[in-house]
Design a protein around this nucleic acid. Structure first.
Lengths: 206, 206, 206, 206
DNA sequence: TATGAATGAGTGTTCATTCAT
DNA sequence: TATGAATGAACACTCATTCAT
């Protein structure tokens, strides 16, 4: 691991302008997702990603200044994909339904590529990435809005509650993914009581 | 001749017989824990561990056939440490109190060395380590016994419930640890409703 | 992560496509030959070879998956070089002259780089390499054809005879090389009677 | 390979005086022979030898100042064993019979532990060992005496002839051993014509 | 702009040798 | 004297990154 004296920045090197470039970037990100899903963090290296993407290793460095930057971009891609779904989920009429939909969305997403989701969760905890807090900030925000809805028991610290709910859901989905579970509905039904319990909602209310 | 090839076995190479050896092994495990806690997985390498332990790199390989084996041994050490505490915690008269004590033990353990606990959790998900199921099996077993206690609502699948509870607790403590939280009591109070909610216990019952 | 384990395959990692690559591969093989000749097997290591070739160690591993593979490639290079010479030698009008030319070729080749030839002979006996039988198979084949020529005494088992002749010649040239002999003609004259004696040819016939 | 600044001497560290020591030395040499025969040069290391001998590694270094010295002692042991046999073989009434017996002895010895014999031959060519010429000197001497016997064709350079004969025999037995041949009589019959041919003896004379 | 050959610091692991017990 | 725990130089091999083409 020839770590350069000065770690390369995390920001993408240049925004792809030509359509060809956009395609290359997309291919790289998808390849990164696949390698991570299939081979784990220890099989994840820039040469492997470039090869799977069908581009030269040089091209990878045209768009990403380093490995970390590639991971960060992948995080963002996954977050963005999920944010849209989460936003729809939370727009249900009742808060309880909104949360259920949200849980369902999380479960669906997680079981689709269980390793990818889990490994990115882990990466997000690394100090270099914590700064780049943007990722999952949107998610936090929209979940926070839901927690504050009036048809839920009032939470003393809504931001803490939002984070805790996410931690509960991720903890359970990551564990399920790691165990190879595939029954989405079952997992969802197991998460809900924990979520509503946390919010102090009686089961019959939810 | 580092013939990169056949993965070294995970089992410790030889049991320390002389007291000097025991000290070396203990020093290596403690050093491994410290390196992992402070520098994360990417700073965790055998040379660093040996150096921090104050022993030669050769000594590490006298007792551990490879890096992975060292991680596994560390997992076991942490599990064993925790199992004793957990066993005491769960011996409370009421199941509710038992669970509260258990949560408290988890939280305490986790916030002591938040990164270590989290990173070992992650490693446990790796296929090589899943086989070595012994780790955390004891934990599962004693938690299962508690879930089956008659002063708790009956769980349809107690083993699933035991795993889920652990996932909830670990999800929340890992997230808290990653955020740098230090208030043990606060975190504990936030976990309990999720746990009892999962078990369908009304807050007043717990 | 140099997982010391699975022995790397023996087949070259990738064929050099650009002329630059071809030069690198050639330089590596020649460097390997020189290191082996001068420092013997115990001085033969990948770093030394790369350094003598004037390329980075990484480049060696671009083309050879491991040390063994480099040795195998060197064997093949030497065999190919020799096969051409041997083929010409054996195309003499009489079988006796053919064999004399063959002996001469062997002696010339051997005394050119005595250690290299001897050490490669030794390596060829290693089980990993015995499978890769291609090496020296061509040699066996053309020698066999000569042994079967009608102007030589009929051999009961021509394939055995071909191998034995090679063993005699190699035994004598290796020993001479190890002793530092340099007189090609003298050595040749000492080998011939053994060869023709083996074939039951009277000295005056040969 | 922690080559000490100054290579340790080749001479045994101390002559074993007590019977216990003699036994230890003998066990070490036999263990060395077995390891070499079974695992080849690349499996031959001091720890393995000590373990197979059933003694601590420290004891090995009590009697042999280093690995090389152990190999040298093993060479000598094998040579001495063989010298006795060779001496008897060569005491036949006619020189031709003496040589036949000698070839037979070589073949027998070689096929007993083919790898050991071959690997020691190889080691003998290493410069550090060439100096310690004692090994196989006796052999050379007694073979020389036979070559000079009057019932053999006169050899211009008897010492060269003695060496050449040994090279022929070793070349053929080593090759046979490497191929896994086990038929002693057959091999012997193939070597004889080469030997007598070298000496310019007609087959019927021999 | 895209490529991939080249690079070398870094890391895992071995094994000859020493020395305290 | 015998032991085996400890040592660290040496070596195989990887992979992030650069740059000439």
């Amino acid at each position: 691991m020839a770590r350069a004296p000065k770690p390369p920045p995390l920001r993408p090197r240049k925004a792809p302008r030509q359509p060809r470039s956009e395609h290359t970037v997309a291919a790289l990100l998808e390849a990164a997702a696949q390698v991570l899903e299939q081979d784990g963090m220890e099989g994840f290296n820039t040469n492997a990603v470039a090869q799977r993407a069908g581009v030269g290793i040089g091209s990878l460095y045209q768009y990403f200044p380093g490995k970390e930057s590639l991971i960060l971009a992948l995080m963002r891609r996954e977050d963005e994909r999920f944010d849209a779904e989460a936003l729809m989920a939370l727009s249900q009429p009742t808060a309880a339904d909104a949360l259920k939909s949200f849980v369902a969305a999380c479960v669906r997403q997680q079981l689709l590529r269980p390793n990818l989701a889990r490994l990115l969760d882990v990466e997000q905890a690394r100090p270099e990435f914590r700064k780049e807090a943007s990722s999952s900030m949107t998610l936090q925000a929209i979940l926070l809005a839901t927690v504050e809805r009036t048809d839920l028991p009032t939470q003393a610290r809504p931001d803490v509650a939002a984070r805790d709910l996410l931690a509960i859901i991720r903890g359970m989905t990551d564990a399920a993914g790691a165990r190879g579970e595939v029954d989405i509905a079952d997992l969802q039904r197991r998460i809900e009581p924990a979520v509503f319990g946390y919010l102090r909602m009686a089961p019959d209310q939810a």
